[in-house]
């Protein structure tokens, strides 16, 4: 009997572990949002957004995000309006049937750097910079992977043959990537005076990307604790009731 239980137990948990254990043993990073009661550090997300806006947005779109979403990470409505108005979107047709350009508003999606995939590929040597909205969910151990990737530009081993227009990165599959090293120390100046080392920039932009992929994370975890508690308490009561009931049977 116990044997069966052991099997069933393994069955339930093994598969998820298989799924998680496939990566090269990349270093793990400490994040504020992991764990049972993980939360986001809002100022880190804001800094990360600055990194995205000043560096990554030159090549990568994030078209699942709206400017209005920035309210979640502590921007005020006026700030959001100001940020959005720096971009132009094509709207229309107007009453005369013409398409026209206007400054973006807070209900617009993040404006993409390229008009379409073709233009993106043309400008990037044939490679397509993926949309970053849910990138941390699209990679195994997403946050760690992206953090490592951003720090992973090192000198290639001597006999390594790089492809045309490729850069060596020790964490990318095949150890080369079509993205030139996007970040380095001092690339972005923080308004709040946080030190802008490479590690700090990478950590902040990754936090921003995790927020963008899982904006519900904090709400989910806090509701989760309550639901788990409910099952524990209800289970306890039911357990006592069950023992009382079955006493007379046994």
């Amino acid at each position: 009997m116990r044997f069966i239980f052991t099997i069933l137990f393994c069955f339930t948990f093994c598969f998820s572990i298989f799924a998680a254990s496939e990566t090269k043993n990349a270093p793990k990073h400490e994040w504020s949002f992991t764990g049972l009661n993980g939360t986001f550090d809002k100022s880190a997300i804001q800094r990360g957004y600055k990194v995205y806006r000043e560096v990554c947005a030159g090549c990568h779109s994030m078209n699942l995000l709206y400017y209005r979403d920035l309210i979640d990470i502590g921007f005020t409505n006026d700030e959001i309006k100001a940020i959005a108005s720096e971009y132009t979107v094509i709207d229309g047709p107007n009453d005369e049937g013409e398409m026209f350009e206007r400054p973006a508003k807070s209900f617009d999606r993040f404006v993409s750097p390229y008009l379409n995939e073709q233009e993106a590929r043309y400008s990037n040597n044939g490679s397509y910079p993926p949309d970053l909205s849910v990138i941390t969910k699209a990679k195994i151990n997403g946050p760690d992977y992206i953090y490592n990737l951003l720090l992973g530009y090192v000198d290639p081993p001597e006999d390594f043959e790089l492809g045309d227009g490729m850069y060596y990165n020790k964490w990318k599959e095949g150890e080369q990537i079509a993205m030139a090293q996007p970040l380095d120390e001092g690339y972005v100046d923080y308004d709040d005076g946080t030190e802008n080392s490479l590690e700090q920039l990478a950590e902040d932009v990754t936090t921003f990307l995790v927020w963008s992929a899982e904006p519900e994370l904090e709400e989910r975890k806090s509701l989760g604790i309550k639901v788990l508690l409910f099952f524990v308490v209800a289970g306890l009561f039911v357990f006592i009731a069950k023992n009382r009931l079955w006493k007379s049977v046994n």
């Binding site: 998820s16 799924a19 989760g224 788990l228 099952f231 289970g235």
Partner: peptide
């Protein structure tokens, strides 16, 4: 009672590891 125990397990996954059993490529 069984449902409480199993509900606990399901809730643990849904709230704390909702993508554990998903394939990353589907994002």
């Amino acid at each position: 009672l069984a449902i409480c125990v199993f509900g606990f397990i399901i809730a643990a996954v849904v709230f704390f590891g909702p993508n554990l059993m998903a394939e990353v490529d589907n994002y």
